[in-house]
Design a protein around this nucleic acid. Structure first.
Lengths: 166, 166
DNA sequence: ACGTGGTGATTGACACGTCAATTCCGGGGG
DNA sequence: CCCCCGGAATTGACGTGTCAATCACCACGT
């Protein structure tokens, strides 16, 4: 594997074809994402972030959750969540209140209006996922997409440790 | 095609398995993206946007380009480019000057420092793409990824017309 | 010559993310 | 008692993106 010399230098960098696939892949997933985002926005006036928060709260017992629990549940940094909750609170989608048990702990809870917004958003959003993603692929491709995601994820989780920790 | 009733309702929404694949896929590509972004940032103090702009300018004759040409070349809205160029100009990576031929046209040009920053960034960035993307997949998976991207893109370009135009 | 409409580019307002402080508070040592 | 530590959450500063004005200037039509 530690091949001599002439190969070695070239192996470090992607070939033109690999690079083409990379660009296609990353640009297309980006475009897909922004299409979905904009449909969610138009149809429900929610951002993907709003949706993630509302989904988590909707599924929580009592429709409420500790802020840090929510953060780790949806995989966000606490600071990001804090900013986002601030914006959502201004729009009346959620409320925050002191947590009686934990010092300095904040309980996040769904308002009726937030629950309603989520309820109205969910079917159109799932439909959009079907239309823009699922319907675009053959069953084989869909399966392959799942495997590719798994492979990338595994590779990331392994390599990531060194730089980003987690 | 306009099937009776019981099928119809279900076909609209993704199944649990489809949804799982979707989430894996979109979250993983997002994570991949942010890993790459953070490596580029750490290694070269450039954002992906910076890199795209510098790449385009580097390849342009005379290392300069009309602003709107640049925008369409990298597929950005003009407003987005304008904001970004402002930030890049503050950091000395590019300069803007009046275009002699076209009224109100702006010429964007690479500064020596911008060219140098790009030169230093490119190899590490390509290496990161190989490490995080290409190396994670088998040759078959890589090919499949290309086909999936193509299929999604084609589907998007077709469906997109109705809502977003382009 | 004077509106009127384009086209090219910038601007402002605002949402979103990240990173680095900062605040609040509840324990231990000394 | 006081100080300092550490966890929970917020805040501020700033880069980034989008959308909707706005600006500058040309062409043109009557």
């Amino acid at each position: 594997m530690t091949e001599a010399t002439p190969e070695r230098r070239r192996r470090q960098l992607p070939t033109a074809e690999e690079l083409r696939i990379w660009r296609d892949f990353i640009e297309t997933t980006g475009a897909l994402n922004s299409q979905l985002t904009s449909r969610l926005q138009v149809e429900s006036s929610l951002s993907p972030g709003d949706y993630a928060v509302l989904l988590a709260l909707s599924e929580a017992p009592d429709q409420q959750m500790r802020s840090s629990e929510l953060a780790s549940h949806i995989g966000w940094e606490r600071s990001r969540l804090s900013h986002h909750l601030g914006r959502m609170e201004r729009r009346g989608l959620i409320r925050r209140q002191e947590c009686p048990t934990v010092p300095r702990g904040a309980e996040v809870l769904l308002t009726p209006s937030g629950a309603e917004a989520f309820r109205r958003a969910t079917v159109p959003h799932l439909r959009a996922i079907r239309e823009l993603f699922v319907d675009a692929l053959t069953p084989d491709q869909l399966r392959a997409a799942g495997e590719i995601a798994a492979a990338l994820r595994a590779h990331l989780d392994q390599r990531g440790r060194g730089l980003t920790e987690r």
